[in-house]
Simulated assay, not measured.
Amino acid sequence: MTDTEEAVAIEHAVIAHYRLADDDFGEPSQRDVVRQAQFLLTEAIEQAEAGEFDGNEYGGGKVVLYAYGPDADALFAVMAPILHDLPFRPAHVILRYGSADDPSASEDRIDL
């Protein structure tokens, strides 16, 4: 499979949102916890061949974690135990069924 074919095949997303302790990037200990979770997420997603963990975005007192794969439900099933273990609240996950630029893509929100 070429890189172009692989990019087309990966179209669903799991996007997890967590509130952190301050209005900036959270405390250093929180970033350490997120870093460890990212390692576990990457490992679990790759082992299940459910897609890929794509990284994070910090700012405004929250962190957002991104993962992509061909089936948002299957991807979330692999990620859920790790996402639920993160202690930061409030938190929620968006399951996006379709690519970001697809106007017909649907989304479901799950509160953690």
Rank of each mutant, 00 (worst) to 15 (best):
Asp111Val: 14
Asp22Trp: 05
Gln30Arg: 05
Arg31Tyr: 00
Ala74Asp: 12
Pro70Leu: 03
Leu95Gln: 12
Ala16Leu: 04
Ala50Met: 11
Asp108Asn: 10
Gln47Met: 06
Val93Ala: 12
Ser99Phe: 03
Leu95Ala: 12
Arg89Ile: 00
Ala9Glu: 12
Lys62Ala: 14
Val14Cys: 12
Gly51Thr: 03
Val63Met: 07
Arg19Ala: 14
Val14Asn: 01
Ala48Asp: 09
Ile10His: 14
Phe53Asp: 14
Leu83Arg: 06
Glu5Ser: 11
Val8Met: 08
Glu27Thr: 10
Val14Lys: 03
Pro103His: 08
Leu40Thr: 08
Asp22Gln: 05
Gln38Ala: 13
Glu107Val: 14
Asp108Arg: 15
Thr2Lys: 03
Leu112Phe: 15
Leu41Trp: 06
Arg96Trp: 04
Asp22Tyr: 07
Glu27Cys: 00
His84Asn: 12
Ile45His: 10
Gln36Asp: 14
Phe88Gly: 01
Ala67Thr: 11
Asn56Arg: 10
Tyr18Asn: 04
Asp101Ser: 10
Tyr66Val: 08
Leu75His: 08
Ile45Leu: 10
Gln30Tyr: 01
Ala44Met: 08
Tyr97Ala: 10
Val63Cys: 11
Leu83Pro: 02
Leu83Asp: 01
Asn56Phe: 06
Leu75Ile: 06
Pro70Lys: 10
Gln38Thr: 11
Met79Ser: 11
Ala21Arg: 12
Ala80Glu: 15
Arg19Trp: 00
Ile94Glu: 12
Ala105Trp: 07
Ala67Ser: 15
Gln47Asn: 13
Tyr18Thr: 02
Phe88Thr: 03
Ala74Pro: 01
Gly69Asp: 07
Val78Ser: 01
Gly98His: 08
